[in-house]
Design a protein around this nucleic acid. Structure first.
Lengths: 336, 336
DNA sequence: ATTTTTTTTGGGAATGTTCCCAAAAAAATA
DNA sequence: TATTTTTTTGGGAACATTCCCAAAAAAAAT
């Protein structure tokens, strides 16, 4: 594997000039003779020279690369956020490296180390559902590499973050169910470790309280977001002596799973069971009946996260870290 | 931004030994006193030292990073392929950098340059629908950086590639429609620039020929994969004086779009129009009726692509480049 | 023609690491 | 104790680039 890529020195040698001059010609530095620049540019083109970003990064101590660390990107949510963040960052002249941890804490730590070793200039992160120890991310902070959380945030770390208004989204969703006459509203919640799970749960609780409905512990189940478990719990809820007349789920895939179970049990949606999801996956408008759900502004989320990171990297990081909460919105479809 | 990260030299100085010794201690080199190693390791931990991968890569001329270049990753397909490729590559000790070009040729070229400047050791690529000139990828070849195509391949370039059996998949899909009594089978095809579009089109044609059915040019429409266009063409087909009784589409999202149009026009599926998609998106089993489709072995695709790349990077690249074609399979659901 | 100014060029340090070679220290042998 | 062998250490080159400073060349001014 003795491939040799053209360097600035090769060009200098062939032209009988110094590497400094070549460097200047290649970097649009003013102090270079027009004709010399021309010759350099031509030879560079001819040898298809490609500047070695590694050497430059080593020297300047910045890579102009930012890392994005997400738990997964199969679902619709993260890819969309990443794309919109990437647009902003690319425009600002940064490269983007994406790592996904497959919801595994171990993988997340390993990815964090890789990004650190590769000297990213900043980090955008949404942690796994398993993550409880944030040392691997604090390391970035300690080395003063800006970190911004989005969607899944660690409130203990004193860094900027962007979330959607999970509490309000959940409140409005449950309020809608109550106002359409439901009285036994179950909630299939996510893992307790995630702040947005907790916020949605609080929204659910407060909506019930606000309308004078009892909070029944047997109607609240938190689970690990795997569809197998979802299935078990959905059936468990429907088999209760007093089954719920509505089900509010932590996300749309779960709600779709509920829809499938109802279909297989011959339960009519929404007459016998109303369903409300969360996130407005594209699937939610394709199923029959359409799924009532809470919209998360995915594009804004990515854009804002990128903006906060750029601020932190380029601006003064002394102020109180900015925390953005984006509004959510209920979309009512056939399932409720 | 004068952050200084701990280096091997800081450790050496604090311990009053040379950087060579520190380096040895840190890299598990045998020629180092056990006690010295211990001291180095402890201090490294304490200062949370992180080796600078840039410096190492510069020195060794390999980054142990491989680039994955895809047109998009919103759809289900690419994320899945990437994840399975990533698993293989991670296990082999490589980092993975993912770039998405948003189906834009310009962005693809720019991404290719970035990856080259960052000195990736290998490239996994599925090009955009706009890509007709492959110079930006040939550059890798010229610099003897292994390239492997997957799914969307450039047959002119003499590199390994992995595809699914698009021809056979399409043939079997259309055969199934014919055998269930359809006679006017339309095909909504992808852009001509993509080989898999062409292969699927050939499969469609040959199936018709094989069963003695005429090929009607008015029933074959290629389009650019945007859903807005899909909508227009679907309506166009259904408005024909002699509308089709079946529609075979280039992919599942398109087929779902057909389903939606049928729903809004009150057309019964499959009685009045049978629909067959391609790729077995998870959505396809959630819609009503379930979508008949052709399964692409996404995980195998990623795994094989990674394997071929590892071969090319580590093995002898002299032989004829390997080309893998993975089998497809028809899944019949309610839409046909 | 000489001096001053401007433009253009070259040399060398610096970035953080590994690896080779020589030197020093320690251990083993005579 | 002296010599040989083994273990451990240090010094410096190399990787590709940028940037500073000085030197050379060219142009302008006297």
């Amino acid at each position: 594997m003795q491939r040799h890529l053209t360097t600035i020195i090769d060009i200098a040698r062939q032209l009988g000039i110094s590497k400094s001059t070549v460097s200047r010609a290649l970097t649009d530095h003013p102090n270079v003779n027009a004709k010399t620049r021309q010759r350099v540019l031509e030879l560079a083109e001819q040898l298809d020279y490609q500047r070695n970003q590694l050497a430059i990064s080593l020297l300047t101590n910045q890579t102009r690369t930012i890392g994005i660390l997400v738990p997964e990107f199969i679902s619709y949510f993260f890819p969309r956020v990443i794309i919109s963040a990437q647009q902003v960052l690319t425009k600002a002249g940064y490269n983007v490296v994406i790592c996904q941890s497959g919801e595994s804490y171990e993988m997340e730590v390993s990815n964090a180390h890789t990004l650190l070793a590769n000297r990213v200039d900043g980090l955008l992160v949404s942690h796994t559902k398993e993550t409880r120890n944030f040392d691997h991310l604090r390391t970035f902070q300690r080395k003063s590499i800006p970190v911004v959380f989005f969607n899944r945030v660690c409130e203990d770390m004193n860094v900027p973050n962007v979330t959607v208004d999970d509490y309000r989204g959940a409140f409005v969703a449950v309020e809608h169910l109550i106002q359409s006459g439901r009285r036994r509203i179950a909630h299939l919640a996510g893992p307790d470790s995630l702040p947005n799970t907790r916020n949605r749960l609080n929204g659910y609780r407060d909506a019930l309280l606000h309308y004078g409905l009892p909070i029944e512990p047997e109607l609240i189940i938190s689970y690990d977001l795997t569809l197998e478990k979802a299935n078990i719990y959905i059936n468990h809820l429907l088999n209760l002596p007093q089954p719920p007349d509505a089900l509010f789920t932590i996300n749309d895939p779960t709600a779709i799973e509920v829809l499938k179970v109802c279909r297989s049990r011959g339960l009519h949606v929404p007459n016998e069971l109303a369903i409300v999801g969360f996130s407005n996956d594209p699937i939610s408008e394709l199923v029959e009946p359409g799924l009532t759900t809470v919209v998360q502004p995915v594009d804004d989320l990515g854009r804002e996260a990128a903006r906060l990171l750029l601020n932190a990297m380029e601006g003064s990081a002394t102020e109180m870290p900015e925390r953005v909460v984006l509004p959510t919105q209920l979309i009512v479809r056939g399932s409720s």
